[in-house]
Design a protein around this nucleic acid. Structure first.
Lengths: 272, 272
DNA sequence: TCGGATTACGTGCACCGTAATGATC
DNA sequence: GATCATTACGGTGCACGTAATCCGA
């Protein structure tokens, strides 16, 4: 059986062209390579090199052997990588979500229900989430539209309504509701990491003027923040609901049908 | 990089189930395997085994690693095999033919024209010959029908006419020619190793009665043997040509178009 | 004279075997 | 007691480095 170190050296020589260059790359001496190449020929039992006086090069056999060597080395490297990835995946639950808000409820539940597991989370649009669930990138995903895939299991996991808060002095501060299209050309304060909401605003507001940091500007907020008692109410502002259908969403937590049993405790908790 | 010997030992353990069984198979001691498996875990960096008190077994990581190991070992083995085969092929000319007669002319020519090359020959029907030429099993083939493949180069290389010899006392001994179908139900002496001729006789003679060894029976022969001065004429027999079209064939020597230049000297010799 | 391949020689490490221990059936 | 895994210890093969040689640009 041909040991890996011989293939490594052959591959390096094939790539570098000379023994000395390969030796330097491998942090080995030239004599070591000379011997290894001889040994390789000995083990395989055929000539692999053309030997000039102070010139060594691969013949056709050698080129073929080097090509095979590359493949074996590639596969050999992959063993460690793949097994590590598999091990990592086996005690990691990856959650993909279209928005951060539902994660605030789900992640703590997952963490406490599946002790010892690492929980990773990521914000993505719905399409890559579905793709990622299928290919194993995610074990759980949160969508803002109900899926239709037969191979999935899902349940609702909360709702969210988008509001806008305005300084009391704002011309629209007296309104009972506002349409997104009415925000055209306005400077609005928008936080990053809001998931699909960002796409929604881009789509529905003509020529939006989002700013990263400002005060006295309109600011989006949602039912989630309004209901959180830890967030103090700002008396200088009024909170006005947005009227577009899309500003009220239902979230759905989904997993592969095959994982339904595994995540049953989680779905049960969330339904309570 | 994971050395091959570690993968070998992992694979053996996965197959045998216990370290001691694997150790015996590999002609190694148990301690050697214990250490190797530990080392493997160390190199990859994840647990590969479930450790009972005196029980060792693969966990899911280990099973995956063993599966990968099998593939790498397979590939590693193939390097030597394939390179040897390639080397062998590079100084072997394999000739496939549908009949032995044209080979008697071709093989000596090949041997003398391509010094140092090993010449191997084989009798096969036309179809596998064409297939074998394409896949590299043969570099030269002899057909008894003109090929049509654009990717081939070929030239005629002789003809052969089938005759039948009869004892002078035979009822048909006075005939000028005989049709194969007239040989129905007759005992005929047939030599083995006559290539496609055998198939032809089977096909065209109703209910043939071929014998392996006999005398005073009809015997096939062909122009090749009749023209050979070294074969004495048997005065007790008459030679009668067969009349079916198929009993007169033209042979064609063919190679891949890409080999045309390589075999040009051979084709030239044969055309003289 | 420098760079590259090869040979000669000594060395250290890594893998192995033997022996002993612990544990389970 | 038999079998299996593991630990401890001592040996050895083999891949490596250093040094020296040969050869060609």
């Amino acid at each position: 059986m041909i040991e890996i170190y011989l293939l490594e050296q052959l591959e390096a020589f094939a790539r570098c062209g000379t023994l000395s260059a390969a030796a330097e790359e491998l942090h080995l001496s030239q004599p070591a390579l000379t011997r290894s190449m001889k040994k390789l020929e000995d083990v395989i039992g055929v000539q692999l090199f053309e030997r000039g006086k102070n010139k060594l090069s691969l013949n056709e056999n050698g080129k073929l052997a080097a090509e095979y060597a590359r493949r074996v080395l590639e596969q050999d490297r992959e063993i460690a990588e793949r097994v590590r990835a598999f091990d990592r995946a086996s005690h990691t639950i990856s959650i993909g979500a279209c928005a951060p808000v539902p994660l605030e409820q789900i992640v703590p539940q997952v963490t406490s229900l599946y002790e010892g597991m690492t929980v990773s989370q990521e914000l993505r649009p719905d399409a890559p989430l579905l793709e990622g669930l299928r290919d194993g990138t995610y074990q759980l995903i949160v969508l803002h539209e109900e899926p239709t895939d037969e191979a999935l299991y899902w349940a609702p996991c909360g709702e969210e309504q988008l509001y806008i808060t305005l300084p009391k002095a704002h011309p629209m501060a007296g309104r009972d509701g506002i349409w997104l299209k009415e925000l055209a050309n306005m400077n609005i304060l928008l936080f990053s990491q809001i998931g699909f909401w960002y796409e929604l605003c881009l789509e529905k507001i003509p020529n939006p003027q989002f700013l990263v940091q400002a005060s006295n500007l309109p600011v989006f907020t949602s039912s989630h923040f309004l209901q959180n008692p830890n967030i103090p109410h700002d008396d200088s502002r009024v909170v006005i609901p947005l009227l577009d259908d899309e500003t009220h969403v239902r979230y759905y937590l989904a997993c592969k049908s095959g994982d339904r049993k595994r995540f049953a405790p989680l779905f049960k908790r969330l339904s309570e």
